[in-house]
Amino acid sequence: MDDATRLEFRHVDKLFPARNRRITPVVAVRDVSLKVARGEVVSLIGPSGCGKSTLLNLAAGLDRPNAGMVLVDNKPVTGPNFHVAFMLQNDLLLPWRTILENVNFGQEIQHTKRDVRTRRSNELLARYHLAEFAHHYPHQLSGGMRQRAALARTIVMDPDVLLLDEPFSALDAQTKMILQNDLARVLAEERKTALFITHDISEGIALSDRVLVMSRRPGTIIREIIVDMPDRDHPFRRRSNPRMNAYVVEILNLLGLTHGDGKDMPEVPLEEIGGAQ
């Protein structure tokens, strides 16, 4: 593995045991190998239930693979690690904390000194246009503002690798586009490495250097698409790029979503899953 690789999956399998012992376990992901280089943004796109979120939990160290390895900075992931941060569809702001206290949350756990963490959090809140809401409670903010606060809470920890699990899917279309732009700018400015999970195809293309397309369960990567467009830090511009549409169509085809092209969708036969254990 080269030095530039930040996050790597090597032949990762993840099974979930069935409730009933006689039923074979569910294979969530199968033989997934991928690399994300330093400063790179990679999107995972696939049908729902294809194990995208499972991959993210593995990378975050919240779960262990049944086979294969997950590495961050060439070291196997053995548990949660604050160099890897994640952000979910649900902003997960703690309702009993103000926005400032929520942004402070991770630093508090790390025992960062109070004045240091408050200064850092206030800086970020100002940059994310939330300064005047620092002492508001989450329920007093709109969904978009809450998600920006969640982004601030993630970025303030200065993680090396960001795992983003459909962070904008609960927002309305307009707010979503604005936040995509904000996120793209932050990722580029801070040269963050990110693995971005989405089922929104154009979002994946607009925000990433590469898009990995996954198959239905058991999820495995069926295609890597290199997004050869400028403006990764500016999804608005990318969306108006004439090549945008070609990428969208290519992925739609891969997912078998365009009419008549469903046969392109590779299906892993069930016997093979049974044989995998």
Partner: peptide, 29 residues
């Protein structure tokens, strides 16, 4: 208690005691 909140604390490397005092206890109020 929302397991996602507990996982959030875990990604920040929270100890078991921190998870209790910062997530579970206030969530139970």
């Amino acid at each position: 208690v929302d397991p996602a909140l507990v996982n959030l604390a875990r990604t920040f490397s929270a100890t078991r005691a921190q998870i209790f005092w910062k997530i579970e206890f206030p969530a139970s109020m």
